[in-house]
Write a protein that binds this DNA or RNA. Structure first.
Lengths: 337, 337
DNA sequence: AATAGCTATTGGATCGTTCCAAATCCAGCC
DNA sequence: GGCTGGATTTGGAACGATCCAATAGCTATT
């Protein structure tokens, strides 16, 4: 016989009952140390492998957390995904990472597949678009589901939402640029009409409004390519603009690349602040000033709150904002660091 | 009663037997259309959700593929992971992505957890370090396992290995730099003693040897930060060097940033070629020349070969090399594109 | 009308765990 | 020696699907 060994085989070998083996597997404290040792020895000898499917079937709790990310190629999200996976792994939970690639259809499939696989909770950074059905399905299953970094469903009582305090961040960035001597600060990037764009823009807008300054905003896909393109636009059509708060670091880096290409240095005659403080920000030149979002800490927090919900039933508050911090570097100060 | 509905409930509602429901679930062609419709209607009405754990228990084949990546933060790997996930999804397989973060212990845990969850195959880009036990475990289970992009175990008959033809790529890059007028070409990045470093270096070495040129290689962690640091080293200690083939694009971008910081433009007096052609290469300034590895195509290929193995039992050849292509851009030609 | 040969449907056994209530063990005490 | 009570151990039922062999329903053929 060459089938995969089961607890029965282990039990036979160790001279105990299958129930005892099961207890050992679950790390129960009520089995005698010698018994446990014997069972573990037997497991090693016959090369036993735990069958989670069977266990799940009976106990219907899987120690599996689903994570659906709208854009795993974005380093910001990658960092979040890996940090969350590690935080959950430390508590004995496995994480299934999936990338919806900003496609609500695919997202629905992924969520469905995860539910079928019996995840016991879910963390989702939703794709843009209508996903009411997907969330309804989640609600029906009664799973703990947290929305992070983006809000895809307004029912935050059902699906608590947590993110960063972007508004304050963009206000700080704008003040910083003005203080450094900038006269006209543009906002670059972010797709119009989206909540996250509104938030990252709102602080900038408030500050400019108070100062009575004109507001120039260039919206578009938040990529490096868009930033590069906008450099040309700014130079050609808005020569008065001498600083920019960017939707994210990718746009900011693209903008800087665009200015470099046009032979215009960034840091003194043109100042830039990005958003997210991705690793690259400190390692490009000029080094990029950025509103830092401590994503590893955020992931850790998310894990903690999710576990409290799963294990103790303590549902997180409907909305949480993590504070952000402005990191001033060469691209806004002109000074080497 | 408020438990999750089962196929029995569906069967009762639809007035058929559980077996019929099971057949519908499996998309069998042998149930009558009206019957299928009735069953599907019933499923919709009572909100039935498929329980994969139960199905797996009986059928022991899960449609789940495990993917373990040594560094998911690296955009090259992220791209591979997402592309593979999509290619497999198209064939009805779900992919579990996990990040070992270059830690063999964690890698062992992840592999173990995936086996427990009953993955039916595995794709792994191994972490550096001794992982014999992990591979042994995989071998015992008899799972189809493919090593990609990195070889962690020498038994390629058991664990077929596929990657890119790096040696040819670095030879081309070096020839290209010499042809553009470079006199002394350094190699920057890559941890010494590793197979992938050897490969990416070998083409460069061969070309320089044939030309009778001196070989300067600066090894280290292949990150942006290292590249930046090496810019200073090159300027201070190797002023004769006027071009570099870099281990990867991150190092190349760091190197360029470092030269920019020192006020030395890259493209004419100093030329750089990277490796991987990540998205950013075309969107930085100067645009980065790079040895392009079509990772999406590679992922697609990997999926195809893996499926042939899983489904038809056709084991892939032990070693496969995908051709690469040199993309010349500003950083090596000095010309804007 | 009986038979054969399909197609469509079905009941029971089964997968490998966990859960539960009951049984067993064992030291301490009267 | 019998009894008590906590610590260990145990057998059988259950989880929810699939698989398999058997059955029922049809049509076409003899």
């Amino acid at each position: 016989m060459n089938r995969r060994p089961t607890i029965m085989d282990v039990a036979a070998r160790a001279g105990v009952s299958k129930s005892t083996v099961s207890l050992v597997l679950q790390g129960s404290r009520q089995v005698r140390d010698e018994t446990r040792a014997a069972v573990e020895k037997a497991m090693g000898e016959i090369g036993y492998i735990y069958n989670r499917a069977a266990a799940n079937l009976r106990s219907s709790s899987v120690g599996l957390v689903g994570l659906v990310i709208n854009d795993l190629r974005n380093p910001f999200f990658t960092e979040f995904a890996t940090s969350l996976q590690m935080a959950l792994a430390a508590e004995g939970y496995a994480t299934v990472i999936a990338n919806s690639d900003e496609d609500v259809e695919l997202q629905a499939k992924l969520v469905g597949s995860m539910i079928e696989h019996g995840v016991s909770a879910m963390v989702i950074s939703p794709a843009y678009g209508e996903a009411r059905d997907t969330f309804d399905q989640l609600a029906r299953r009664g799973l703990p589901v947290m929305q992070v970094l983006r809000q895809g469903d307004e029912r935050t009582d059902l699906f608590p939402f947590s993110s960063f305090d972007y508004a304050t961040g963009s206000a700080r960035a704008t003040q910083h640029l003005l203080q450094k001597g900038a006269q006209n600060v543009a906002f670059v990037g972010g797709l119009p009409g989206r909540a996250i764009t509104r938030e990252r823009k709102s602080g900038w807008r408030e500050v400019l409004r108070k100062e009575g300054l004109e507001q120039v905003a260039l919206h578009g896909k938040s990529s490096r390519a868009f930033g590069m393109e906008m450099a040309e636009t700014l130079i050609a059509e808005h020569p008065e603009i001498d600083a920019a708060v960017c939707f994210n670091d990718l746009v900011a880096l693209g903008l800087i690349a665009g200015f470099a290409r046009a032979g215009r240095p960034v840091g003194t005659e043109f100042r830039v602040v990005g958003f997210d403080d991705i690793e690259e920000a400190a390692q490009s030149w000029p080094q990029l000033s950025s509103v830092s979002c401590d994503i590893a800490q955020f992931a850790q927090d998310t894990a903690t709150r999710l576990l409290a919900w799963m294990v103790e039933g303590k549902r997180p508050e409907p909305e949480m904002r993590m504070p952000v911090r402005l990191i001033a570097r060469t691209s806004s100060t002109g000074e080497a660091t």
